[in-house]
């Protein structure tokens, strides 16, 4: 990992306007294919325009597609998104398949750009029962107790002392003695 990654904007995965819940709005609004008609670096792009573009536009009527030939310059894909972001993909020497994959990526992403994900998940409601505080699950009786309080100071588990055990044995002995003897 290079240090550059540390200075990426950080964030959580999220869908803009709850996209995909109930309805889905394509975030890609405008896609411009810039290419050269002669240069071999635009070959993949030209193949895409020839074989794939019309199918692409038919499948995605919501995306405005511009095709912009320009002489003797490297090809690129310029994508403009609903949130105002603009992404440019340099497509120099890209094959037909590569262009197809990049177009598919630009179409399906939200246009938020690259962020360093702090977690692989995000929720607006991390806890249903709410955050803990010292007053959670506290016995309301404690509100009118006066401190120091002797009862609250006693240990919860009290082991029987030797004296108490002795008294128990003694009482048991007395009980047996009091019973009528069987003969």
């Amino acid at each position: 990992m290079s240090n550059n990654n540390l200075f990426l904007p950080v964030g959580f995965p999220r869908a803009p306007l709850a996209n995909g819940v109930g309805r889905w709005i394509c975030q890609l609004q405008r896609l411009t294919f810039k290419f050269c008609k002669n240069y071999p670096s635009s070959r993949g792009m030209r193949e895409f325009l020839e074989f794939e573009l019309l199918d692409f536009t038919k499948k995605n009527p919501g995306i405005v597609v511009y095709v912009k030939p320009r002489r003797h310059r490297a090809p690129n894909l310029t994508a403009e998104y609903l949130n105002g972001e603009k992404q440019i993909v340099d497509c120099r020497n890209f094959s037909y398949e590569e262009v197809k994959k990049w177009v598919s990526l630009l179409r399906s992403q939200s246009g938020r750009g690259t962020v360093r994900l702090l977690k692989m998940w995000h929720t607006d409601h991390p806890s249903i029962q709410g955050p803990w505080s010292p007053f959670v699950n506290r016995d309301p009786k404690l509100n009118w107790v006066e401190f120091p309080n002797e009862d609250l100071s006693q240990p919860i588990y009290i082991e029987k002392s030797a004296t108490e055990k002795l008294i128990e044995i003694f009482e048991e002995q007395q009980r047996i003695e009091r019973q009528p003897k069987q003969e």
Partner: peptide, 14 residues
Amino acid sequence: ILENVTNQIRRPRL
């Protein structure tokens, strides 16, 4: 000091 106290720690022994 005492008016802040809202809880008592139980002592470990009788």
